[in-house]
């Protein structure tokens, strides 16, 4: 006869053991999975990939068209190819990012500067990218045989070309700004020339007027003020002479520049010549005022 009670004891033991192990393992796995999914993804959502899949799943279209039961066309293959190419481009960018980050991150991990979480996230991103690349190659081969071998090359060139264009574009965009600056600078330079020429012509007239005032007037204080004015104008002439040489050496450095600046000078001189009567008048009137004192 079988002793059921004594036989039940080992069976109960075994069932409890196995049951507890099973619950532990399932709980552990669940928790681990939860932890893995709760980790933040390394990259932001893959927009190009999402668009590609959205296009693939486009029919039936989500928008109810007013055309009734006429079925809109499915997405043409060329659009899907373009979307796939964009997706490959973004993949390359991500792979590059991962590659450049890997070394630094592993170093930081070894030193204990970053937590294990970060490393887990990184590894997961790497694995995902591997899958992603395989998927893209498979899709490409499905459209056109052997496209999978070149799609990433093409995508890579496209990225680099875009980068180069963007940089060159950046330089060209500054053109207007620089032009405006240069116009302003040119105007100020011209103004400076005018002023110098004005000062030159003006000072020569003042010297003549002062000589006349000194000859006509005989009172001492007036003579002294006139002398002061003379010394002042002499100083201004000296200033003109002092500021002139660098300009001339600059012009010597280049033939074209000589032409331009000679033109400028001629124009300025003409303008100054037109202006000079007024300048001379104003300075002489000033002189008179001083003389009255």
């Amino acid at each position: 006869m079988v002793d059921w009670i004594t036989l039940a004891v080992p069976f109960a033991y075994l069932s409890i053991l196995i049951g507890s192990l099973a619950t532990f393992s399932s709980l552990y796995r669940k928790r681990k999975a939860l932890k893995a999914t709760s980790l933040e993804p390394w990259f932001p959502p893959h927009l190009q990939r999402d668009i590609y899949f959205s296009l693939m799943h486009l029919d039936p279209p989500p928008t109810p068209t007013s055309k009734g039961d006429k079925k809109p066309p499915a997405v043409p293959e060329s659009v899907l190819k373009a979307a796939l190419l964009r997706r490959a481009g973004e993949d390359i960018r991500r792979i590059m990012a991962l590659r450049s980050q890997k070394q630094a991150l592993s170093m930081l991990l070894q030193r204990g500067s970053v937590g294990d979480d970060l490393w887990q996230r990184f590894l997961r991103a790497e694995k995902e990218m591997e899958e992603e690349v395989r998927d893209v190659v498979a899709e490409a081969n499905a459209y056109v045989p052997n496209w999978g071998q070149t799609i990433f090359q093409s995508a890579n060139e496209m990225i680099n070309n875009a980068v180069v264009r963007e940089r060159i574009e950046k330089h060209q965009k500054k053109l207007d700004e620089e032009k405006a600056w240069w116009e302003k600078k040119k105007a100020s330079i011209q103004e400076g020339f005018m002023k110098e020429l004005d000062a030159e012509t003006g000072s020569s007239t003042t010297t003549t007027t002062t000589t006349t005032t000194t000859t006509t007037t005989t009172t001492a204080p007036v003579a002294s003020t006139a002398a002061a004015v003379v010394s002042e104008s002499a100083a201004s002439i000296k200033k003109v002479e002092a500021s002139a040489p660098p300009a001339s050496t600059v012009t010597e450095s280049d033939d074209d520049a000589v032409l331009v600046e000679a033109d400028d000078q001629a124009a300025a001189a003409a303008a100054a010549a037109q202006k000079s009567p007024a300048a001379g008048g104003s300075s002489s009137s000033k002189k008179k005022k001083k003389g009255k004192k």
């Binding site: 893959h46 959205s54 799943h57 659009v79 995902e128 998927d135």
Partner: peptide, 16 residues
């Protein structure tokens, strides 16, 4: 891991 690769965000796109 295998599940995440099959997930994507659907965008409401239209084709002219």
């Amino acid at each position: 891991m295998a599940q995440t690769i099959d997930l994507f965000n659907q965008y409401p796109l239209t084709l002219d």
